[in-house]
Amino acid sequence: NQASVVANQLIPISTHLTLVMMRSEVVTPVGIPAEDIPRLVSMQVNRAVPLGTTLMPDMVKGYA
């Protein structure tokens, strides 16, 4: 099972991601792979992401 990136807190819209905001967890459905966490740092979310939500490629500007 592959770990995905999950929000560690509420991430407001247009926030630049930091390591503190993300954790890796095995979830269904599978989202952005956990090994991409370093790549996600300083990218922006294009919507509010609630605590515990799996980050999907379409939620992060410039990821997909």
Score class of each variant (00 low, 15 high):
1 N>T: 13
27 V>Y: 03
33 P>A: 11
40 L>P: 00
55 L>D: 00
49 V>Q: 02
44 Q>M: 12
39 R>H: 12
4 S>Q: 01
52 G>E: 04
63 Y>N: 03
45 V>A: 05
29 P>S: 04
14 S>H: 15
30 V>F: 07
34 A>Y: 06
7 A>D: 01
40 L>D: 01
62 G>N: 08
55 L>W: 02
62 G>R: 05
54 T>N: 03
55 L>E: 01
27 V>N: 03
2 Q>V: 11
63 Y>F: 09
23 R>I: 08
28 T>K: 13
35 E>F: 12
32 I>V: 08
33 P>D: 06
27 V>A: 07
59 M>K: 01
5 V>P: 00
20 V>A: 15
47 R>F: 06
52 G>C: 04
28 T>G: 06
18 T>Q: 14
20 V>H: 12
52 G>S: 07
63 Y>D: 03
29 P>F: 04
23 R>V: 07
31 G>S: 01
60 V>I: 15
32 I>C: 05
39 R>S: 10
2 Q>A: 14
36 D>F: 10
33 P>L: 08
21 M>L: 04
5 V>I: 09
17 L>R: 00
19 L>H: 10
20 V>K: 12
15 T>I: 05
5 V>R: 01
19 L>I: 11
29 P>L: 05
29 P>K: 06
33 P>C: 06
5 V>W: 03
9 Q>N: 06
57 P>A: 09
13 I>L: 14
16 H>K: 14
39 R>F: 10
23 R>C: 06
48 A>D: 15
41 V>A: 05
24 S>H: 08
24 S>V: 11
53 T>K: 10
62 G>V: 04
21 M>G: 00
42 S>H: 12
45 V>S: 05
44 Q>I: 09
26 V>K: 09
48 A>L: 14
26 V>S: 09
43 M>N: 04
21 M>V: 03
20 V>G: 14
4 S>V: 02
43 M>T: 04
54 T>S: 04
48 A>C: 08
5 V>N: 02
60 V>Y: 01
21 M>F: 04
61 K>S: 12
6 V>R: 03
62 G>P: 05
58 D>F: 13
57 P>G: 07
58 D>G: 11
18 T>C: 05
63 Y>M: 05
34 A>K: 06
1 N>G: 12
30 V>K: 12
56 M>E: 07
60 V>R: 00
43 M>A: 08
45 V>M: 06
8 N>E: 07
44 Q>D: 03
43 M>Q: 07
12 P>M: 06
13 I>Q: 15
27 V>M: 06
50 P>K: 10
18 T>M: 10
27 V>E: 02
7 A>V: 06
49 V>E: 03
54 T>R: 03
20 V>L: 14
34 A>L: 03
35 E>C: 08
3 A>T: 10
44 Q>V: 15
8 N>D: 12
32 I>D: 00
56 M>D: 04
28 T>V: 14
10 L>F: 13
50 P>N: 10
51 L>P: 11
10 L>I: 11
50 P>D: 10
22 M>V: 07
5 V>S: 03
25 E>P: 01
8 N>V: 12
48 A>M: 14
9 Q>Y: 10
7 A>Y: 01
30 V>I: 13
43 M>H: 09
32 I>L: 05
22 M>H: 01
55 L>V: 06
35 E>Y: 13
21 M>S: 03
52 G>R: 04
35 E>W: 10
29 P>Y: 04
5 V>H: 02
